[in-house]
């Protein structure tokens, strides 16, 4: 009975995860004609700079999300029940709207003649160049991915036993000690999943850089170009995807090892 219920999900994963992965690997190691080659992977090397930039911007966005998201999650978790519900709702609300539309909205805000600059002019300040900068890309990523940082940390924090906080105070900790010795180590699992959920999509994003970064091409954009646009080189695109996946995988493994050491049993 149990096995049968799982069947649709197994089929789903097979069709939409395993098969595409196999196809990515297949295309990455073949030419357009279908012959085996390493040429695609060798060619990926030329894009090392772009890879680096993508990971850098992804990492910066993740860090900013963590710096904003952690205190926010902590405040949410310590609020009264109805305030908590409202805050979670407010946090999720932007996600009810399409990701693309939200990013377009940021364009109209950040443009040279956009909302923000009009406001600056109105109060007599000079215009700022905001659109088409890497700052705008980071802003777009932070805006879009912040909830993915807040929610997992909040989920861990809300389950944290307040008696542990009292126990730490009782044993001589002031609020800073309580945070450092109890709250922070116990929220590591939330931090890890928050980082994963922000960094992975941020490092491979393509639409944000395109819309807010002007000409900036991140690795996601280049992959898109291979598959849909002018370059039309499915095999190179597949090779790039493969390399990106491996890089992300390695990053996550390093994170998890670090996390395991920090909070051996916090997950239990």
């Amino acid at each position: 009975m149990k096995k049968r219920a799982a069947l649709p999900y197994i089929v789903w994963m097979l069709v939409f995860t395993i098969v595409p992965m196999i196809m990515v690997v297949y295309f990455a190691f073949t030419t357009k004609e279908g012959a085996f080659t390493l040429e695609n992977l060798i060619q990926v090397k030329e894009y090392a700079g772009t890879f680096w930039e993508s990971i850098e911007l992804g990492a910066v966005s993740t860090l900013i999300c963590l710096l904003f998201g952690y205190p926010m999650a902590a405040i949410m978790a310590r609020s009264k029940a109805h305030v908590q519900r409202t805050l979670v709702l407010l946090c999720m609300m932007p996600m009810w709207m399409n990701f693309l539309l939200r990013t377009y909205a940021w364009m109209t805000i950040l443009e040279n003649n956009g909302l923000f600059n009009s406001f600056l002019q109105l109060i007599g300040l000079p215009k700022l160049q905001m659109i088409n900068t890497s700052g705008a890309i980071v802003l777009g990523m932070v805006y879009n991915f912040l909830p993915f940082m807040i929610i997992p940390i909040y989920t861990v924090m809300v389950k944290l036993d307040t008696r542990l906080v009292e126990a730490a105070q009782d044993l001589g900790c002031n609020w800073l000690g309580v945070f450092r010795r109890v709250i922070l180590p116990l929220s590591v699992p939330g931090i890890i999943s928050g980082i994963t959920m922000v960094f992975v999509p941020a490092a491979s994003t393509f639409i944000i850089s395109k819309l807010l970064g002007g000409g900036t091409m991140l690795i996601g954009d280049i992959i898109e170009l291979q598959i849909t646009g002018g370059a039309n080189n499915l095999n190179l695109g597949a090779a790039m995807s493969l390399v990106l996946m491996i890089i992300v995988l390695i990053t996550m493994m390093v994170m998890n090892v670090f996390g395991d050491r920090e909070s051996e049993v916090a997950l239990v």
Binding site: A167, Q169, D170, L186, E264, A266
Partner: peptide, 20 residues
């Protein structure tokens, strides 16, 4: 006087040991 400055210690109901 906050709890951390008082010369008392507590054994909590259900212990509240630090799981980490």
């Amino acid at each position: 006087v906050p709890p951390y400055k008082r010369p008392v210690n507590t054994i909590f109901q259900r212990y509240a040991l630090f799981p980490h």
